[in-house]
Write a protein that binds this DNA or RNA. Structure first.
Lengths: 143, 143
DNA sequence: CGCGATTTCACCCGTTCGGGCGATAGAGGC
DNA sequence: GCCTCTATCGCCCGAACGGGTGAAATCGCG
């Protein structure tokens, strides 16, 4: 919904930028043919324009890849001795699910989830769900 | 501490890049003098090189400003109609504090905190603290 | 096979949380 | 003056959470 608008605006912006570059190149050719400026000046203008374009592209394009590229900090997980199931319940907690919902998700008893949440808290050294999320984020256990 | 290393590495990288550009320009001048290629090719190469440089610069420069500059999304707060106190308790929730602790922090009764948490949840359309944090983060109400 | 770690589940108990309802008091707008 | 918004607080109740203990079943490794 909102991302569609952003996408459309980005595409339109790209189109405008490309059109502007085409016009600029034509203009440069014309000016060069007219021999009003030195070649060095053309090159400098070209360089400046394309550096700016590049910076703009870089700023525009980076958020998506940066967001996409996350991998769990395996070293931290190993250091804490987090088991598979504890990571599962941590994921559930992070998504704001209740113990009962996590139990349904994993197909186990709510009592079991409680046990795993307790041992997870012990390993993270926290006493509340929100604190567990904070700690996990600080350790790059979660995005 | 760590940012100093990053700063040094960035400065060095810039210096290398500028040196490379100077060399490239000299080379381009030389090739142009030798008349081995057409002007259009020079321009295209120049454009490509500087676009890449610009993208690199953009990627390199954005993280620090983006991380440093966070300001609460006042428009979203206004749209939701969040009051001052509701923002206070939201901050407390985000920091993993219990209602009782938030009450102590703000110097009010736990019952009052409960009421404000309830109306905060209603405005955010959530039913649990973790979900409130998720929603607030999605709306840039919190970092 | 035997041992340790993991996973699973149960029960009890007290605290915290969330929903709902009502009430009072002050600030500000009409 | 009246009305709305906000902040404040109280009470009741059920659900969710957290702490503690114990105990099966399963699995991997030596």
């Amino acid at each position: 919904m909102a991302s569609l608008d952003v996408m459309k605006r980005t595409v339109i912006a790209y189109a405008i930028a490309l059109a502007a570059i085409a016009v600029l190149l034509q203009w440069l050719d014309f000016r060069y043919a007219a021999r009003d400026f030195s070649l060095e000046l053309y090159l400098a203008v070209l360089a400046l324009v394309f550096v700016v374009l590049g910076i703009w592209l870089g700023v525009r394009l980076t958020p998506a890849p940066r967001a996409a590229a996350f991998e769990a900090n395996e070293k931290a997980i190993a250091a804490l001795g987090l088991t598979r199931r504890e990571r599962d319940v941590l994921a559930g907690i992070t998504r704001g699910r209740s113990n009962k919902e996590i139990a349904r998700d994993l197909g186990i008893s709510p009592n079991t989830v409680k046990s795993q949440v307790a041992s997870l808290f012990a390993k993270l050294g926290v006493g509340r769900r929100v604190q567990a999320i904070e700690k996990a984020r600080a350790l790059s256990l979660i995005p």
